[in-house]
Design a binder for these strands. Structure first.
Lengths: 118, 118
DNA sequence: CGTAGATATTGATGGTTGTCGATATTCGAG
DNA sequence: CTCGAATATCGACAACCATCAATATCTACG
């Protein structure tokens, strides 16, 4: 099951609609979900997540990510930090290189909360 | 099917994972998806969407929404406009009152793109 | 018509964010 | 140990955003 902190109860995941559509979410839940959406709500970060998720082995080296964009290296590093800080990306250093991997459960939890399986 | 502009192809919707996780999304697709996520990436707007979606008849009067928050009326009006401009909320005026309704297809499309049915 | 209530718009303000160049850090190679 | 390459951090700046008070707009009702 999910390891994220969005607290999907069994009742919620089994219901017909997403929690968000079934009953008003609490202010607390909104405060917890919003930062994740904020982290995703940027074209560059969306593509970063997508590139990493679609990579062989589910992870990608920062060196490759830098080449995929027409942005400075610090900017990419910044976006990766935002995604990492919010728990969407795992980070692992191997030698001089850093690899990021998408935490799929977090992503699917967000999706389920927003409009899941409806 | 969906009437939103996110262009989910049949291939994508039928696949095992969300498009975002299966292959790198295009810059164009990212630019189209990001504004929707941005609109949702605010605690107040998340609750607004949730309250409206969970209301009887799938719509809610602005007068009720104002009471649900500890914010000024213009602020609520602003958030509703953001959600409406991005196509997440439908707006219908009936007499002096204005009712907003959630466009569920848009919401579920976003969810499917992000991490749908995985 | 004119007034009252519901909603939207405007203008201002403090806070946040995306981006960059410069610099720091970290690590393997020699 | 030193050098070079990979990544992160810092400081700055312009653009954007959430919020409010004040005001405008719209509509039903006398």
């Amino acid at each position: 099951m999910s390891k994220s902190q969005l607290t999907l109860t069994p009742v919620e995941t089994a219901a017909c609609c997403s929690p968000l559509m079934r009953e008003p979410i609490s202010a607390d839940q909104a405060e917890r979900l919003a930062p994740l959406l904020k982290a995703l709500a940027d074209p560059v970060r969306l593509r970063l997540v997508s590139i990493v998720a679609a990579s062989e082995g589910g992870e990608a080296c920062v060196c490759d990510l830098n080449d995929a964009f027409d942005l400075s290296q610090p900017t990419i590093s910044h976006h990766l930090k935002v995604l990492h800080d919010v728990g969407l990306l795992d980070r692992s250093k191997r030698g001089v290189w850093v690899y990021y991997a998408v935490r799929r459960e977090v992503l699917t939890d967000v999706a389920t909360l927003i409009g899941g399986n409806a």
